[in-house]
Simulated scan of single mutants.
Amino acid sequence: MMSNLFSVFDPSTNIMNYSLNWMSTFLGILMIPLFYWLLPSRLTYYWMMMTMILHNEFKSLLGSSISGNTFIFISLFTLLLYNNFLGLLPYVFTSSSHLSMTLALALPLWLSFMLFGWINHTQHMFAHLVPQGTPAALMPFMVCIETISTIIRPGTLAVRLAANMIAGHLLLTLLGNTGPLLTSSSLSILIIAQLALLLLECAVSIIQAYVFTILITLYASEVN
């Protein structure tokens, strides 16, 4: 039962033994040309307004850094946002619910920030291991705790995003499988519950993309 339940999230297909499910990640490319070939629409205006809000927020978090470095975080937010939303469509594989993708996004970014910080701001990185006001007797323990918390950051980022995305999809699948066993009166309640959960998952998709990007931005701001 459990293996059949979690097989919904199995990234494998029966078409020539290729993992064609991952091609759903590139479905957003089909939507991109509309922003270039059509006249500026209301949707384009709202998207540019949201991009400017994100740019200002990331810029305030990063402080006086190299100009233009917010674009990588805006691109990361966009990638996660449309992957999370595409996973809500029927028969579309949710790539952001797998650690193979979320860890591939979190680990290189975190590793690049750590290398940049330890190479260019070594004293600042050493000072960051001991919070201000720590007693001398607790300093060795604080160094160990801060080191462990820094090392597990990419893992917690990846697991947070994957777990939140897979939990809602799993609940929708469980409720959907009970549909054939219900009566007509109970079925209407199930449909309302499914619609409410779908609305909740839309909010979770936005929030998780935002949280992932904000945390990556905060980790980048610590190395300056």
Score class of each variant (00 low, 15 high):
M2A: 13
M2D: 14
M2G: 10
L5D: 02
F6W: 13
V8E: 01
M23F: 03
F26V: 06
L27N: 07
G28L: 00
L30W: 05
Y36G: 00
Y46I: 00
M49A: 08
M50Q: 11
T51K: 13
M52H: 15
L54I: 04
S60T: 04
S60Q: 15
G63C: 08
S64L: 12
F71S: 14
I72M: 11
L76F: 12
F77A: 03
F77N: 08
T78G: 15
L80W: 05
N83D: 14
N83F: 02
V92Y: 00
V92M: 11
S96D: 11
L99W: 00
A104S: 14
L105N: 00
A106D: 01
S112A: 15
F113L: 11
L115H: 12
F116S: 13
G117M: 06
I119C: 10
N120A: 05
F126W: 06
L129S: 14
V130Y: 07
P135W: 06
A136Y: 12
P140S: 07
C144Q: 13
S149C: 06
S149K: 11
I151A: 14
I152K: 02
R153T: 06
R153N: 10
R153G: 00
T156E: 04
L157P: 04
A158M: 09
A163K: 14
N164L: 06
G168C: 02
G168N: 07
G168F: 05
L170S: 14
L170Q: 03
L172M: 12
T173V: 07
N177D: 06
P180Q: 08
L182P: 11
I192N: 13
A193N: 12
A193P: 13
Q194M: 13
A196T: 15
L198E: 02
C202Q: 07
A203W: 14
F212Q: 05
A220S: 12
S221T: 04
S221I: 08
E222L: 06
N224Y: 09
